[in-house]
Design a protein around this nucleic acid. Sequence first.
DNA 1: TGCGTATGTAATCAATGTTTACATCGCAAC
DNA 2: GTTGCGATGTAAACATTGATTACATACGCA
Lengths: 217, 217
Amino acid sequence: MTKTTDSDEAGDAKRYHHGNLVEALITATVEIIEERGAEHVSVREAAKRAGVSPGAPFRHFRSKTALLTAVAEQAMDRLTKAVAKARSKIDSADPIEAFEAIGQGYLEWAISNPTHFQIISSRTLIDFEGSDSLRDHNEAIRRTMIDLLTQAQQQGRLAPGTDFDHLVLAARALVYGLARMAIDGHFREWHPSEPPALAAQRALRLFMSRMTIPSKA
Amino acid sequence: MTKTTDSDEAGDAKRYHHGNLVEALITATVEIIEERGAEHVSVREAAKRAGVSPGAPFRHFRSKTALLTAVAEQAMDRLTKAVAKARSKIDSADPIEAFEAIGQGYLEWAISNPTHFQIISSRTLIDFEGSDSLRDHNEAIRRTMIDLLTQAQQQGRLAPGTDFDHLVLAARALVYGLARMAIDGHFREWHPSEPPALAAQRALRLFMSRMTIPSKA
DNA sequence: TGCGTATGTAATCAATGTTTACATCGCAAC
DNA sequence: GTTGCGATGTAAACATTGATTACATACGCA
């Protein structure tokens, strides 16, 4: 009865009960994805890294897919927060500035967290449709971007003759394409002097400046 | 010595030598990808479908990765041809029209061949760097698009104040993003009346119309 | 015809996902 | 404190997979 500390991670003593296996497995899985790619994750390896037997993970995750989905949920959570933070930073009520800020926040997060972004968008490895959390967060981001563009339209800020639906499509495709290019290594041939996140931001800004009309203020 | 026919596939007789195993394995692998996704391909399953023992594929492919890379090479070959065909169809010397045609050809192929496009761009499953064929074809397409935009620039057809490098980046990201959205199922919420390929084409056209100046002719 | 080599088979191995029977701990009720 | 039950872990097993090795077969050329 020497120690009854129940809380967190700093224990060396190997107890029968891990205490925080779910978290430890997710962390270990992220590590493996970083080292070998999401396709080469193994549940046994994650268990080993968490210091636990091969069967233990299945007490918490029905399958390997469920484990990877949990990783995706954590990732999506962080992405949502990054986007929200990016938006809160600009105080302007200008919907176009807000859209740019959100796009930039999205891109910055995706580019500096390629592992997490990769698992979010690899929909054959995770059960996207089966996770309310994933679907909801994804829809929230998408709706925010559409709402801002709708505001811009209502304020007459879209370049004349612009079809709204195809503008939205192009904007989403641009942001998504830039993010995926980054994680797929397409930025390798880019100028070393300009970091990918900055280049992406400028491309997005170029796009928006051609699609919209500057505010009069 | 009844049959000495050496050529192709129409034989029911189970010969010891398959005759065209490489091709058969690639075809079988494509089938599996269509059914279960690229991450769930198994060499044994491909061997079974080709009517051959589990070890046989390794006579022709050093590893599973090598088999998947061969599939990617076949896919890239077809994509290159589709792009070339799209370009040859328009006789105009206008670089911007040519760019649009190529982009459209690229998108149409990617959207109607999601399986093949997926394997091309999943660079953790295939050995992209190790395949001269893949690198060369990829570089060729990229260079063609850049060259056309360069011509447009030299003819003074870019909207004033447009930074060339970021225009190229945005254009590539847009095309790539549209293609990936299609294969990742992001078009599901799109109007059912307008097929994804058409929507993508219009988004691309919108983008180009804002970035360039129409020809005087 | 005969033989070398490309191509296939069979057997085998280690690693993996998953299940099942059993062990151990944590914690609330007495 | 003791008891007992549910949550959490272990150990062992099974089928499937990627890959290797020793052996078998047949194609094609001298």
